[in-house]
Design a protein around this nucleic acid. Structure first.
Lengths: 235, 235
DNA sequence: CGTTGTGAACTCATTCACAGCT
DNA sequence: AGCTGTGAATGAGTTCACAACG
C-alpha cells in the first residue's frame, strides 16, 4: 500500500499536457458527465474533445490511478491533477490596471474556485485610486512593493495597456512575484526564473478568422486540407 | 520555382504557425523595432521570442518575400501575413452576454485595428436590453437570427456563463455564423463547418501556477523550513 | 559580405494496437 | 467481459547547417 513510486510524478509535463489536465479537472468538477462513479478515459475524452488514448497517456503520467476494467476514481483523480498542477493550495495574486477586464476577472467565479485569491488592486490613475472594486480598494502602483511582500503575493495579473506593461512587470518582479499573467499584447522581458503566460485576445480572434477563411477560400475554390481543427473522434 | 503563384501560399499552416504570424504582424505594426527599412528574421525573432530559423520557416510558407542579404520588406510582409490570416478585410461579429468582459472587448483597440467590427450586442437580461453600451444598444437574444442574417455577421463572441453557452452557440450557428470565439469554460458542440476558438481564462491562470510550481518544487511539508535559497519570499 | 530558404536531423507529441490486470 | 498502461509506429514541429543569392 506504500505508493512510493507515485511520489515522482515526472514533473516534465509539456504545457499542452498541463492544459488538458486543467480541462479534465473541469469535467470532474462539473456534474456534467458524472454519475459519481469512476470515469473512463473514453468519457473524459468525449467531454474534453480529445482521443481516449491521449487521456490515458496524460493520466498515466500522474501515477497509477486508474483501475483496469473500471476506470479512474473521480475524487482521487481530481486530487492528483490538482497536486500536479500545483493548485492544491491557495495562490495569492494582485491585479494591476483596473479596467473592465480586471472587473471581469475579479467577478470570474472560476478563479476563486480553483484557489486563486486576488488580494490587491493597483492603478496609475489617481481617480481610480481609493475606489472600492469588488470588495477591494484600488491602490497606487507605488504601493506594489510593500503590498506584494507583506501579503506574500506570488502572482501578478497585468490588465494594463501595452505601453506601461513592461514597467509594471518590472515593478512586480522587483517586488518578488514569481509569475505573471499578461493581457497586454507585448513580449515581457523578465528574469528567467519568472514565469509569464500571455493571453492576447486579438490573436485569438485572428485565429478564428484564419480558421473560418480556411474553410471558405477567399475567391477560387481551393480544397480545404485535412488538418483543420483537432476534431474529436466524432462517431 | 521561379514563377510561384503567390496566390498559393500553401494553406497547410498549423495553428501554432498562424499564431506566430499574428505576433509578427503585431511587431510590424508597432513602431517598436522598426526603422521603416527591411526587417531581418533575427530582429523579428528577438521581438517575438522565438528562434530566427522559426521565423524564416514561417515566412517562407507565405511565398518568397524575403530578399537574401537584406531581409523582409516590411509593408509587403504585413500585406502577405494579413492575406494569409484572412484579415485583409473586415469581419463583422456580434457579442452575446454583456458583462464586464464584453465591455472590455468592446473597448479593446486591437480588435478594430485588425478589422474586426462588432455590430451587435445581445443579452438575456431584460434589464440590460435597451441599454446603450459603447455606441451600441443591447438587444434580446431573440433578435439574434434576424440581426445576424441582415447584417451578414460571420463571427459570434460568447461572453456568457457556462450554462447558457451551448444554447447561445446553437442560436448563433442556426443564424449562420461561421465561427465562435468562446469564453465559457465548456466544450461547444457545433457542426464541423463552424470553427470554434475557446479562451478559458481560468486555465491560463492554472498554467501559470503550474509553471511557477515547477520551478519551486512542492517541498513536502515534512521538510524542515529551510525555505528556498534564491529569492527570499520572507522579509 | 549578410541574410534568406530549405534539406536533413532531431525532438516532441499523438495515435495504434495490444498485453495485462481486475 | 471491460479498461488501463505502454511499447512501437507515426506524425508534427523545430532546429541545424549550409548552399544560394542579392
Amino acid at each position: 500500500m506504500s505508493d512510493e513510486r507515485q511520489s515522482d510524478p515526472d514533473s516534465r509535463l509539456s504545457r499542452a499536457t498541463a492544459q488538458r489536465l486543467s480541462q479534465y479537472l473541469r469535467c470532474l468538477g462539473s456534474s456534467g458527465t458524472r454519475g459519481s462513479g469512476p470515469i473512463s478515459s473514453e468519457e473524459l475524452a468525449l467531454a474534453v474533445g480529445v482521443s481516449a488514448a491521449q487521456v490515458r497517456r496524460d493520466l498515466a503520467a500522474l501515477g497509477h490511478l486508474g483501475q483496469r476494467g473500471v476506470g479512474y476514481d473521480t475524487p482521487a483523480l481530481e486530487t492528483a491533477i490538482r497536486k500536479t498542477l500545483g493548485i492544491d493550495r491557495e495562490w495569492r495574486a494582485v491585479l494591476v490596471g483596473v479596467g473592465n477586464l480586471a472587473r471581469a476577472l475579479l467577478r470570474y467565479r472560476g478563479f476563486r474556485d480553483q484557489g486563486f485569491v486576488i488580494v490587491g488592486l493597483f492603478d496609475s490613475d489617481p481617480h481610480k485610486v481609493g475606489q472600492p472594486v469588488e470588495g477591494l480598494t484600488v491602490e497606487p502602483v507605488s504601493a506594489i512593493p510593500t503590498r506584494v511582500s507583506t501579503a506574500r503575493v506570488e502572482l501578478g495579473i497585468l490588465t494594463v495597456p501595452s505601453e506601461p506593461a513592461q514597467s509594471v512587470a518590472d515593478a512586480l518582479v522587483a517586488a518578488g512575484v514569481k509569475g505573471l499573467l499578461n493581457f497586454a499584447p507585448v513580449l515581457l522581458r523578465t528574469p528567467p526564473a519568472v514565469r509569464v503566460v500571455t493571453v492576447d485576445l486579438a490573436i485569438q480572434l485572428e485565429q478564428l478568422a484564419f480558421l473560418v477563411q480556411l474553410r471558405d477560400p477567399p475567391s477560387a475554390e481551393k480544397l480545404v486540407p485535412e488538418w483543420v481543427e483537432k476534431s474529436p473522434p466524432t462517431r
